[in-house]
Simulated assay, not measured.
Amino acid sequence: MLVSLAAAVSVGSADIRFTDVWRVVGFHLMGVGGSVDPATDAIVWQLRLPRVLLAALVGAALAGSGAVFQGLLKNPLADPYILGVSSGAGLGAAIAIFTGWGVAWLGEWAVPVWAFLLGSCALVSVLQLARLGGAMRTDTLILAGVVVQAFFGAMLTYVIAMASAVEIQRIQYWLMGSVALREWKDALVVLPFLFGGMAVVWLLSKPLNLFALGERSAAHLGVSVERTRLLLLLAATLMTAAAVSVSGTIGFVGLIIPHIIRMMTGPDHRVLLPISALAGAVFLVWADTLARTVMDPRELPIGVITAMVGGPFFAWQLKRYALGRRD
C-alpha cells in the first residue's frame, strides 16, 4: 500500500520522481530529506497526497464494511449500500446542493454533513423496521434495507426532478463519486471513523465467525447475538457513511474486494477484515489514478473505473476459484 501511495502521487500531468515524493513527505513529517522545489512540494503535499490518501481511506472503509455485511448477513450480494446508506447519503447531498441549507454556517462542509446525517438516518430507519417482536433477524434486516433504499431513492429522484440544470449536474457528479479537489481536512473526516470502526469489528471478529453457524448456534456458543449484530452494523455503517459523505457514492468496492480476499485467505474474519481494508485502499488508489490520467486532461468518474476494472477481475478470480475447487 505504501508503494502504491508513493507511485500514485508520482503519476500525473507534472512528472515527479518517486524519490522526490518521499523527500517531500519526509521533509513535512520529520524535517528530513533536504530541500525540494517549491512547485514540486505544492503539487505533492497540497494537491496529490491528500487526494491519494483520501482514496485509500475511502477504499479501506468500503471494503472493510463490505466484509462485515457479507459475513453478518450471510449474503454474497451484501455490500455497504444494502441497508440504504448510499441512498440516504445521496439524498442528504442532493438536499444540501438544491436548498443550500447549512451553507451559511457550514460552508463547504454542508454537503458532507447532510450526507452523513441522512446516511445515519437510513440506518436508524432500517434497524427500527427490522425489529419485530423485540428481535431482529437477518432476513427482515435485508428486506428493511430494500424498503428504506427504495424510499430514499424515490425522494432523491424527486429532488433531482425539481433541481435546475446546474444543480442536477452537481448532484449527478457527486452521485458518480470522486475524490478530486479534496483537502487534508476531508481525509481527517474519514480517519477516526475508519480506525474506530475497524477496531470494533476486528474485536468482534470471533463472534462474527460464529454467525456462519447460524444465530441460534452462535447464541448457544455464548455470543450475545443482538448486541453483537447491532455493534457490527453501527460500526460498518458509520464507516460507510463517513466515506460516502466526502467522496460520493462509489460502488463495487465493498462488493468485490471482500470476495476476492476471501478466496485468497479463507473466511476467518480475523484475517479477512484487515486484509480486505488494505486491499480496498490499494484498489481505490489505483482506480483514482486511472480516473485522472487515462483521459487527461479530462477526468472520469471513479465509479466507472471501479466497475470496468473490478468486474472482469472478479469474474477471472471466480472462474479460477471454481476450477480449483473442482480439481
Rank of each mutant, 00 (worst) to 15 (best):
A161S: 15
M162Q: 15
A163L: 08
A163Q: 04
S164W: 00
V166R: 13
E167L: 02
I168V: 15
R170K: 14
R170P: 01
I171P: 05
I171E: 01
Q172N: 14
Y173G: 14
Y173E: 12
W174H: 04
W174F: 14
L175F: 05
M176W: 02
S178M: 03
V179I: 12
R182Y: 05
R182L: 02
E183R: 15
K185F: 11
K185W: 13
D186Y: 07
D186S: 12
A187D: 11
V189L: 15
V190F: 10
V190N: 10
L191N: 10
P192R: 11
F193A: 15
F193I: 11
L194C: 12
L194H: 11
F195N: 11
F195T: 13
V200R: 12
V201C: 13
L203Q: 14
L203R: 15
L204W: 06
L204R: 10
S205R: 15
K206I: 13
P207L: 02
L208S: 08
N209E: 10
L210G: 00
L213I: 02
L213N: 08
L213D: 12
G214Q: 07
G214K: 07
R216N: 14
S217M: 14
A219M: 09
H220C: 08
H220S: 14
L221N: 04
L221F: 03
G222N: 00
G222P: 03
V223W: 07
V223F: 07
S224N: 15
S224F: 00
E226C: 03
R227S: 07
T228N: 02
T228D: 04
T228G: 01
L230S: 06
L230E: 08
L231V: 06
L232W: 08
L232I: 06
L233V: 07
L234T: 10
A235W: 05
T237N: 14
T237W: 01
M239T: 06
T240D: 09
T240G: 14
A241R: 09
A241P: 09
A242Q: 12
A242E: 09
A243N: 07
A243I: 12
A243G: 15
V244E: 08
V244P: 07
S247Q: 02
S247G: 04
G248L: 04
T249E: 10
G251E: 05
F252C: 09
F252Y: 14
I256M: 15
I257P: 05
P258G: 00
H259F: 02
H259Q: 01
I260E: 01
I260K: 04
I261E: 04
R262N: 06
M264D: 02
M264N: 00
T265N: 00
T265D: 00
P267N: 10
D268L: 09
D268R: 05
D268K: 09
H269W: 06
R270Q: 12
L273W: 00
L278F: 13
A279D: 02
G280A: 10
G280D: 10
A281R: 08
V282Q: 11
L284R: 07
V285M: 15
A287D: 00
A287K: 05
A287E: 08
D288S: 06
T289C: 04
A291V: 04
R292W: 01
R292A: 01
T293P: 07
T293C: 11
V294Q: 00
M295R: 12
M295Y: 13
D296Q: 14
P297A: 07
E299V: 15
L300R: 02
